[in-house]
Design a protein around this nucleic acid. Sequence first.
DNA 1: TGCAAGTATGTCTGATGTGACATATACTCC
DNA 2: GGAGTATATGTCACATCAGACATACTTGCA
Lengths: 110, 110
Amino acid sequence: MRVDRRRKLERAGWVVGEAGDFLGLSPEERQFVEVKLALAASVRQRRERLGLTQLQVAERLGSSQSRVAKMEAADRTVSTDLLLKALFQLGGSPRDVAKLLIPKIRGRAA
Amino acid sequence: MRVDRRRKLERAGWVVGEAGDFLGLSPEERQFVEVKLALAASVRQRRERLGLTQLQVAERLGSSQSRVAKMEAADRTVSTDLLLKALFQLGGSPRDVAKLLIPKIRGRAA
DNA sequence: TGCAAGTATGTCTGATGTGACATATACTCC
DNA sequence: GGAGTATATGTCACATCAGACATACTTGCA
């Protein structure tokens, strides 16, 4: 994990461990955070792939640039509801969400 | 769709069409509702499979029986955050969520 | 260097979600 | 029929999340 990314997560209120990430969270909490991080990353990826600014996305969503920034940062004040709605607005489907949640790397635990 | 189930959804605030379900919703809204309904159904399924009452699940979650009932009814006052947390508490994983979101039926549109 | 565009962060007010409780309904079993 | 258990529904007070705004930071370019 890149250092700046890690700092950002910590500022956002997450506790980020070094190797065994997310230490200090219960398994359930860890899974929830995982999902949220995956959704947030996907929002950013889709936006960039579409060549849109956060402001443009915000307009599509009827939201604001700052909120889009917070979505992508997985800020603790953004709900998964909002992340899902954003993803769908950016052309994603439930199937795409599913793909996000399935680990692609083989030979490593979960 | 069973009639009683449909009535329940309508009371919960969803607009449910007959054949082409979810008419009147934008594609994005429809996708969001789909996800929520899938999560809600999964919560019920897992609870029943574990042989737990809503009250027992509520205690595990630090919530109340009425809220669990609303989760399973996909009430509009329950967030996907809560549904995800409930699922994970009931032993589900992000991978299980992914499976929920992938349509299993072939030969029919989405 | 300065400027401009994009992004990040802090905070406000109003909207929505939350657990809790009361109560209604449904289903057994006696 | 009534009692007991499970689930559903309506409502509260409080917590959390929403968009909006101001403002700071970052990046690229003249």
